[in-house]
Design a binder for these strands. Structure first.
Lengths: 337, 337
DNA sequence: ACGATCTATGCAAACGTTTGCAATAATAAA
DNA sequence: TTTATTATTGCAAACGTTTGCATAGATCGT
């Protein structure tokens, strides 16, 4: 706990070089002779020296920080509780660190409406990863229009002036629904809220499968529009069973949490899964495997998504122009279907 | 997208004042006349002006950033996916923002061993919230010894030279176990890993209840030491049932995820919950309520914990000395017991 | 052996704020 | 009126890096 923190100049003096040289050494500049560089780095280690990031950022006009913005309409004042979303953040965290960047975790509460001003002009971060397109995309579009280095986790099929990385939600919806039908379901329910871009694509896939599957029997499909919380799913299925009885035999839930909520309601009313009702979720959160019956679901490759998001953002920071990219999904069949 | 970003001097010129005045206006300095202040703030809004945080931090020697450090032995190279931990982070995020600070999400991978050097000397953050005490506390202790503003989420009963906020794990363990016994369990199993400080306290509570409960029959208790993942719990209970049959009638799992894993194994072997085996978890993650049977658990007040962590840290930044604080836990009885 | 090219380092000027101190204008006290 | 006090504002010096340019040896081709 030395009282006087070392500054670069002090370290330089210790090494008998100029501050320029010291600076270059710590930044691995190829201008320096290998010995000089290593000697200074060694010295820095010994003295527990660390650069003043504020000064460095000011001078270099570069922060080496990536901001992750949770863009969730509903949760403005509320803490996030969706395990899938948090997994995405966690994976992004890892990917960001691997590239030598730090992660500023933010949200609309802090950033306000002018994301470019807050993050970029404000020199808080070099670029932005937006998690979730949200119901209205104005803020993202404005930021993109202002040339903010920016990548979005969302549905790559949505037309946009910014790059999006995300799963093939339409295909995921299709696959899930085809699977339900293949497993014998004929009266299908979609639960979720298609107002969200990604969920809307899943719903499109659902409809597509319902309408295009060749079967001897006709397939009926229905949208049960609910808030995307497990509680809402539980309540909705519960109410449905009470009012109309069991008039469906397959559920495609737009997220695992919804599926689990629905399953709880079904089990409480002694509806057999998967015999009476087959059910498929989306996301493949860890609970999908632990629940019983375990939950068939559409897995998203968040690990790879995170890597891509960060790679693309960094490419954009380097001046390259980047494109959206779609990730393949995978059906994980388990006991619920 | 103005090409030339405004700097404070420009804004000042626009307002017809000096940069000093402009600076004070944006920082709500009481030195300024109210009109002046508001006029400049107004102007700043109009022009989407935002201060350069790097410059500000350099000059003021203050970052207005709080770093949150996920201190997890196991997860060094791996992304976190414990829903409870992520909920804690999310609650901290909220609390941090409410106090006007930003949140730097970090981990041992970035910070290395010299936390004081990295965060404080490096001017990346003003203070540190460490989530999880980890199996070995050297890093925390060293940082605390270096006078790092620092608060830890952990068990407040652990002796330490730093302030800890956390639940009363011992009492939680006691209450959970007493409840199991009250519900008729006699042969109790604790699953988890007491090597972690918090879990060790829960285990102590477990033992205490087993040994001090007045009952006609004697209570047996046993530690089943496993990794703290739901998979491990599933595997362990599964193996146990195969090898020794059902030789227990109550489980206290040191986390909900473990409890859910255990429940899955029990259900697969047609052990009735709660008739044959009562089970209690810890944390009260959202899945506890959704699972079926729903899971009795010890709820931790993460919302309040987050608020306290941030408050204490900020108090410490202001020079006050702060103490550890223990939060009450609450038994949530559900169907599993 | 001599200019030309290259390598390795130092000098000094930014980067854009905040803030102690001085200065001036306005008000109160005498 | 004069002086002491207070309320506002401006001046200019930091904060600690990075980096374009200059410089001085070292190397090389002829």
């Amino acid at each position: 706990m030395q009282k006087n923190k070392l500054k670069l100049a002090d370290l330089a003096k210790l090494a008998g070089v100029s501050t320029s040289t010291a600076s270059r050494a710590l930044n691995d500049s190829p201008l320096l002779k290998k010995e000089t560089r290593e000697h200074i780095q060694q010295l820095a280690k010994e003295h527990n020296f660390s650069l003043n990031a504020a000064a460095s950022r000011l001078r270099a006009q570069r922060t080496k920080v990536i901001a992750v913005l949770l863009n969730l309409d509903a949760y403005t004042e509320q803490s996030v509780d969706d395990p899938f979303l948090l997994k995405v953040v966690s994976d992004i965290n890892l990917a960001v660190n691997k590239q030598g960047y730090e992660l500023l975790l933010s949200n609309s509460f802090m950033a306000g409406n002018d994301w470019h001003g807050y993050f970029i002009d404000g020199r808080r971060a070099d670029g932005l990863i937006v998690v979730g397109q949200g119901k209205q995309q104005e803020c993202i579009e404005r930021a993109a229009a202002a040339n903010t280095p920016l990548v979005v986790w969302g549905d790559p099929n949505i037309p946009s002036n910014y790059a999006i990385v995300g799963s093939d939600n339409f295909h995921g919806g299709k696959v899930a629904t085809e699977h339900l039908i293949a497993r014998g379901a004929r009266k299908l329910l979609f639960i979720g809220d298609p107002a969200h871009p990604e969920l809307s694509e899943r719903y499109r896939g659902f409809l597509h499968s319902c309408n295009h599957t060749q079967q001897d029997q006709t397939i009926s499909c229905e949208l049960l529009k609910i808030d995307i919380t497990s509680d809402a799913a539980y309540a909705a299925i519960n109410a449905r069973l009470l009012k109309q009885g069991l008039d469906f035999d397959g559920i495609f839930a737009c997220s695992d949490m919804l599926a689990l909520g629905a399953m709880k309601a079904l089990k409480e009313r002694y509806v057999s899964i998967p015999n009476d009702v087959r059910i498929v979720g989306f996301d493949d959160i860890s609970m999908a495997d632990i629940s019983s019956p375990s939950l068939t679901t559409i897995a998203q490759d968040t690990r790879r998504a995170a890597t891509l998001l960060v790679q693309k953002l960094i490419a954009q920071l380097a001046g390259e122009s980047i494109d959206s990219e779609q990730l393949a999904i995978a059906l994980k069949q388990r006991q619920s279907s």
